Computed example of a mutant assay.
Amino acid sequence: MLWLTISCFSYAGTEQPTGGSYGLALDPVPTVNFVFLTPANAQQQQAKDIVQHSSILTTVRQLSQTRYVFAPSLDIVFGSTKGPNFDSTQNEIQIPYQYITQLLQHVAKTTPYTTQQQRYQATTDALLLTLLHEIGHAYILDRAIPILGNNETMVDNFVTILLLNDIDRGDEIAINSNQLFSIHAINDTPLSNNLFIQQHSLSQQRYQHILCLVYGSDPTRYQPLLDALPLVQQQQRQCNDIYSTTHQGWLYYLDI
């Protein structure tokens, strides 16, 4: 099977002689490789095109050079037969083309978006969430970060902190995550039988935790967000502390 690999590099500094004096020489350190397996049909080709024409690759590449540097490199394989999944034995994230197609169909069926551009944007938002989720699992394993609690909540925190600090429209993507991945939204859609969705679909409790982080990051800006939720004032104040603690915890690892 043919494939296309795109490598992303970060750089580690080492002192080397430069023009008779010591300067900083940059050695390439691979962090993330994008691998595109050959599509088997027109539908898979469309899925591949959606990814390559979106900002996803640029976003993941930039983050791989500043936030989650992997050495040895982490492969992200589009067109795999399994997944979405992080395969720790192969050190790769697997994303089937079929999953991207299912996301597009899900968006078309369950959202009010009327234009192809809007549907493609919502699809790539959902795919970015999926990728960051699996990258979170890979990063926690790579850095041997202690898991002191629920593993999925820890990864939700990782994803949300990155969305809020590093990604254009990240707050919007986090807020819309329930619309994209809630059990209610996914019922009777092509995604309902997907193993990744069955394992990771957002419960209302997980979604409220994500919203709590968003609100806690800037209570004044996001006050209307929680006005619509059944959270008392004391719970809203706790969101400030929850975000601060979560942000400081990931600051230790992500250099935010």
Rank of each mutant, 00 (worst) to 15 (best):
191 L>Q: 03
155 V>M: 14
253 Y>P: 09
112 P>S: 11
106 H>K: 11
96 P>I: 05
170 G>V: 02
72 P>E: 06
215 Y>C: 00
143 R>T: 05
196 F>K: 05
141 L>I: 10
104 L>I: 09
174 A>N: 05
153 T>M: 14
165 N>Q: 15
59 T>K: 13
14 T>K: 13
165 N>G: 01
198 Q>R: 14
47 A>P: 08
175 I>K: 08
159 V>T: 05
176 N>L: 14
108 A>V: 12
18 T>M: 14
61 R>H: 10
32 V>M: 07
138 A>K: 10
178 N>W: 10
60 V>Y: 02
126 A>E: 03
87 D>Q: 03
149 G>T: 03
248 Q>A: 13
147 I>S: 11
105 Q>Y: 04
67 R>Q: 07
227 D>Q: 08
161 I>A: 12
124 T>L: 09
245 T>A: 15
226 L>W: 02
96 P>M: 13
115 T>S: 15
88 S>A: 09
73 S>E: 11
66 T>A: 15
5 T>P: 03
107 V>M: 13
4 L>K: 07
201 S>V: 00
28 P>W: 09
112 P>G: 04
69 V>M: 09
126 A>Q: 05
236 Q>T: 10
39 P>D: 14
156 D>P: 01
192 S>W: 05
143 R>K: 15
57 L>I: 14
113 Y>R: 15
223 Q>D: 01
193 N>C: 03
98 Q>R: 15
26 L>M: 02
28 P>H: 08
247 H>M: 10
135 I>C: 00
48 K>N: 08
99 Y>N: 11
144 A>M: 04
108 A>M: 12
103 L>R: 13
137 H>R: 13
159 V>H: 11
126 A>W: 06
53 H>W: 04
39 P>G: 02
131 L>S: 01
192 S>G: 00
4 L>Y: 14
192 S>D: 14
104 L>E: 13
103 L>G: 10
125 D>Y: 12
23 G>K: 05
1 M>G: 08
